[in-house]
């Protein structure tokens, strides 16, 4: 019982948005879908939601092909893109959600709209960036689906509303265990919520692991420049920084004890992500 991507590619003319993506997303876990702009996150989610057919490969939801009636009934995706009619008001959109989504929690949606200060009489298209995000995240939180994907859910939200969303997400997850896929740029904020992270780089999956493992995989070592030079001689250095006589480098964490005078700290998920992106960019060029 899971979402499976097998060798999925998506081409638009000559450009390739996804290259041979293979993934397994299990039930009742919180996944992060991380990647730079244009990495293919939205494309991946749109294929999952049956909006785009893939060029190659198979996508299944609990065994049913993505885009089939069975799969569509289990998946709910909210993203930046507007699939609502020009003149549809928030209130009517909630009504449509109630009509089409069997598990939709209408009262909760109305309550959340009040909590966030969302005017349900406004047209969906006329909402500001922030309130557009709020509208979408309310749909996602109340959808009742087995697999819910949030594509950039906190765009334009102030710190208080972002925090409120994370809190509501964890409440919803605790009350009704389901799979959450969180695609976001705000990695530092979301890192603690994620159980596993899927990292995309230029259409390929470059990491798909529990965040615990990623935290430990790389580390940052720092110390006096002379000692560092000695230490780094036989190691693959992913990135370096020098401030005065102090040098800091990102390397693979082998867990072995450090020579005296050097300090090691693990990278948090955001630092890991940035370092990994830089490494992958270099690989592509070199």
């Amino acid at each position: 019982m899971a979402i499976e991507f097998e060798g999925v590619s998506k081409r638009y003319g000559r450009a390739q948005a996804l290259k041979e993506v293979s993934l397994r997303l299990e039930k009742e876990r919180i996944y992060g879908l991380l990647g730079e702009n244009g990495a293919g996150k939205s494309t991946l989610l749109n294929i999952l939601g049956g909006r785009l057919p893939q060029s190659e490969g198979r996508v299944t939801v609990d065994g049913a092909p993505a885009g089939s009636d069975e799969a569509q009934g289990k998946v709910f995706i909210v993203g930046e893109s507007n699939y609502f009619p020009e003149d549809m008001k928030v209130k009517k959109a909630f009504r449509a959600a109630g009509a089409f989504l069997p598990g939709f929690e209408s009262e909760k949606a109305a309550a959340l709209a009040g909590e966030f200060g969302l005017d349900v009489k406004k047209r969906v298209k006329a909402l500001s960036t922030g309130y557009g995000s709020i509208f979408r995240l309310i749909l996602g939180l109340c959808s009742g689906a087995d697999y819910v994907a949030f594509d950039e859910p906190v765009l334009g939200l102030d710190a208080r509303h972002r925090d409120l969303f994370y809190r509501l997400l964890m409440e919803s997850y605790a009350a009704r265990p389901h799979t959450v896929i969180l695609s976001t740029h705000l990695i530092a904020e979301a890192a603690n919520l994620l159980e596993e992270a899927v990292i995309l780089h230029r259409g390929r999956v470059v990491a798909c692991e529990p965040t615990e493992n990623l935290r430990g995989a790389l580390c940052s070592v720092s110390g006096p420049a002379r000692l560092m030079e000695e230490f780094l001689r036989d190691k693959q250095v992913l990135s370096q920084r020098a401030v005065g006589g102090l040098r800091t480098a990102c390397i693979q964490n082998d867990g072995k004890p450090l020579p005296p005078g050097l300090e090691r700290s693990p990278l948090d998920l955001q630092e890991y992500f940035i370092t990994l992106m830089e490494e992958k960019d270099k690989e592509d060029v070199g």
Binding site: Y173, A174, N192
Partner: peptide, 8 residues
């Protein structure tokens, strides 16, 4: 998980 915004 709810109060600290962390994964259960």
């Amino acid at each position: 998980s709810v109060n600290y915004r962390i994964n259960p």
